[in-house]
């Protein structure tokens, strides 16, 4: 029988969503043009050449290394691109992807990237053309709700703050705004420099939709133990207890 990776335990909707994010089996909800994603990232002008830090690998002549022969380089690495980043802030008010699950998604599904998780934000670094591809995948998929998630290269706080009246995540640099037509527009790049034109990111999810797609356990949503009052906790909490026990007693060496 073929091996199927088991990414996350539990039968709650959050557990199922976490498995989806980790496996990369995520639904595409929108299609934001690549040039717009590049503009929001703000590392290069859309259509400009990629800056490079070294010549293409084919021209460099790599040493005789079995690992290099086994692993094909990513497009960005092969071309010698700079390393660039995209950083996301996801609201704790039922944003679809919370920081750790963007990282799991990146680490499992994105080749040649370096994900980093902080308390309220998540950054992925990779070669420039690779990170552009990965960022577009995140923007277009159910990992992102345009009201509750936004790209913030600096001044990132917003994850644990209350939402604004219109349901948007608070951003003191006002990088995104809710239009009168109900669509969310990106008006600045991820570091707060105004864009040449507003970029339509589409309509935000409803509260019910966000709660359906979220990967955050919350007492006022889906708690980690599963259904409140159930005779048995959900497997997610049992697994966490199990891991903590092993880690505490034997330094994570189950013998």
């Amino acid at each position: 029988m073929a091996y199927t990776p088991q990414f996350y335990p539990g039968s709650t909707s959050v557990g199922i969503n976490r498995r989806k994010h980790m496996s990369g089996n995520i639904e595409k909800l929108r299609d934001i043009p690549e040039a717009d994603v590049v503009a929001i990232m703000g590392h290069r002008a859309p259509g400009a050449d990629y800056a490079s830090t070294h010549p293409p690998l084919k021209e460099m002549g790599e040493p005789d290394c079995p690992v290099r022969q086994l692993v094909a380089p990513t497009a960005g690495a092969a071309a010698g691109d700079r390393v660039r980043y995209s950083q996301w802030t996801d609201s704790m008010y039922f944003a679809p992807s919370i920081p750790y699950f963007r990282s799991y998604w990146g680490a499992i599904n994105c080749k040649g990237c370096d994900p980093g998780t902080l308390s309220g934000r998540q950054i992925i670094e990779a070669r420039e053309r690779d990170i552009e591809k990965y960022t577009k995948q995140q923007y277009d998929s159910e990992m992102t709700d345009v009201a509750l998630c936004s790209m913030r290269g600096c001044t990132v706080h917003g994850h644990s703050l209350r939402l604004e009246e219109n349901g948007m995540q608070f951003d003191m640099l006002a990088r995104t705004e809710m239009g009168k037509d109900g669509n969310v527009y990106a008006v600045k790049d991820q570091v707060g420099i105004p864009l040449d034109k507003k970029i339509n990111l589409g309509k935000p999810m409803t509260e019910a939709e966000a709660k359906k797609r979220t990967t955050i356990f919350r007492f006022d949503g889906v708690p980690m133990g599963g259904k409140i009052g159930a005779r048995k906790f959900d497997e997610a909490i049992e697994m966490t207890h199990h891991m903590w026990e092993y880690r505490s007693k034997w330094g994570y060496r189950p013998e």
Binding site: G153, V191, G192
Partner: peptide, 13 residues
């Protein structure tokens, strides 16, 4: 904008 590459850019909002 208080810091970062865009430091000093006015925030009209």
């Amino acid at each position: 904008v208080p810091y970062g590459p865009g430091r000093g850019t006015p925030i009209e909002e």
